[in-house]
Amino acid sequence: MIDGMEVLKAFQPHRGNALVTHSGTTGRRWGEVSTNENRDLRLESSMGQTTSAAFGLALGMPDEKVVIFDSEGSLLMNLGVLASVAGKAPKNFFHFLLDNECYATTGGQPVPNAQGIDYAGMAKSAGYASTHHFDDLEDFVMSIEQIMQEEGPVFISVKIEAEVQNLPMALRQRSGGRSRTETIQDFQKEMGIPAP
């Protein structure tokens, strides 16, 4: 198991100008690592649907790399997206899966068949152009530069440690930072896209 923050830190130098979004407990911490927040989008809302939003973004901006840090709990709620992505095969789509084997945000209950699912294998079978799996940080660090040069859609699953949250929602500290609307507005300004 790898510290998820170390995965984010190892990715950061190889981000280039990629557009980055996220779901899940660890992915949510991307803002602590990012050095280009105007190209970060906070799209979390409906269960498992952030990946589909990132997919739409990749289709709409084919000249930009689009990265999502997904979680296995979210992916399991929207598994069909693997086929949807593979069907359109956006070359600019990089799908990272931070797999902590549980619903960390609800107290750490295991996802179904938590230790028995080969997510990279599922993505490969669905038709992703390239798939990878890591359970060792050093291997990830050694590979990430090359992976970001690949033609997508690329799927990268990484086994990470769970950052379990177990306080009632009302007692939790809000993550703060920009709202979803603010990240979209900043992003569209950065990219020169007129507001709707």
Binding site: L41, L43, S46, G48, Q49, T50, T51, S52, A53, A54, F55, G56, L57, A58, L59, G60, M61, N78, G80, V81, S84, I184, F187, Q188, M191, I193, P194, P196
Partner: peptide, 16 residues
């Protein structure tokens, strides 16, 4: 599956 429709649309909308 239909749940993907509004979310995929959101990504496209953001892209203009």
């Amino acid at each position: 599956r239909e749940g993907e429709a509004p979310s995929t649309a959101l990504g496209l909308n953001i892209a203009g």
